[in-house]
Computed example of a mutant assay.
Amino acid sequence: MSARKPYNPDPHAHPGLAAIALLEAVKAALAFLAAAGLEFSGPAPLRTFVNTLIRHVGGDPEHGSSSTLLDMITPDTVHVGALALVAYGLLRSLEAWGLWRARAWASWLGCISAALYLPLDVYAIIRHPGWASWLLLAVNLVVVWVLARDIGKRRPVTAR
Rank of each mutant, 00 (worst) to 15 (best):
V50G: 00
A44V: 15
A159L: 14
T158W: 13
W97S: 10
G110R: 01
G98W: 02
D121Y: 07
C111V: 00
V146G: 01
A18M: 07
L118V: 15
S66C: 15
V86Q: 04
R47T: 14
L141D: 03
E39W: 10
V78Q: 06
I125K: 00
P11K: 08
L137Y: 02
A114K: 05
G152K: 05
A148L: 13
A19E: 12
R103T: 05
R149H: 01
V50M: 11
V144P: 03
L99D: 10
R103L: 14
Y117L: 14
V78E: 06
T68R: 12
L30D: 12
T158A: 14
W108F: 14
L23M: 12
G37T: 09
V86M: 06
R154W: 03
L109I: 03
W134D: 09
L30V: 06
A114N: 13
P45G: 12
R55I: 11
P129M: 10
K5Q: 12
L109F: 12
Y123N: 13
A104W: 02
A19V: 00
R47H: 08
K5W: 02
W100A: 15
S67D: 09
G98I: 04
G98P: 09
L22P: 00
L22C: 04
Y7L: 13
F40L: 15
P75T: 06
L91Y: 05
V144S: 02
A84F: 08
G16A: 15
G130A: 04
A18V: 11
I112G: 13
L69V: 12
R154S: 04
L69Y: 08
A19S: 06
V157F: 10
D10V: 05
S113P: 01
A115L: 13
G130E: 01
H63P: 00
R160Y: 11
G89T: 05
D10L: 05
K5S: 11
L137M: 10
G152W: 08
R47F: 01
S107P: 00
C111I: 00
L135Q: 07
A36T: 06
A96S: 14
Y123G: 13
G16W: 01
R92Y: 06
A82F: 01
A124Y: 02
L137W: 09
A87S: 08
A21E: 04
A13H: 02
G130S: 06
G98R: 01
W97M: 08
N8W: 03
S133R: 03
G64T: 13
L91D: 05
R92V: 01
A104M: 03
L85M: 14
A102M: 07
V139P: 02
A34Y: 03
S2Q: 07
L38F: 12
S41A: 15
A104D: 11
L46F: 11
L109Y: 07
R92N: 10
A31Y: 10
L135V: 06
V143R: 14
L91S: 08
G59D: 05
G152H: 10
G37L: 07
N140H: 15
F40Q: 10
P61E: 03
T158C: 06
V122T: 09
A3F: 10
A138M: 09
A13S: 13
A29D: 14
T74E: 04
L136F: 07
A148P: 01
R154A: 09
A84Q: 11
H128A: 14
N140V: 00
